[in-house]
Amino acid sequence: MKVAIPTPLRSYTRAPEVEAEGATVGEILADLDRRYPGIRFRMIDEQDGIRPHVRIFVNRERVAGIEETLAPGDEVQILQALSGG
């Protein structure tokens, strides 16, 4: 499925939207990391928590954790909540 990538992570993907496969958000992120090494740890900490300023949406609904399941055709968006100077 297609995954929307925010600008701070495009140094990894070189594209605003990329393909990744998986039945959960966690599997999608693992697949992204296989394709673009290092990208997952910038978004997800070592305890599998979504980092404070990272937001992941499935079908425009924000998900609380990476265990969220996905269905074929779901729309996944990764966004950054930028703040500060």
Partner: peptide, 26 residues
């Protein structure tokens, strides 16, 4: 400010960089 920590490495004084494949993590 918004992404996780990492370590970058260069062996040509910054002409090219690569990212640590496994940065410090608990």
């Amino acid at each position: 400010g918004h992404l996780g920590p990492t370590v970058f490495c260069s062996t040509d004084l910054g002409k090219t960089w690569r990212e640590a494949s496994s940065p410090p993590a608990f």
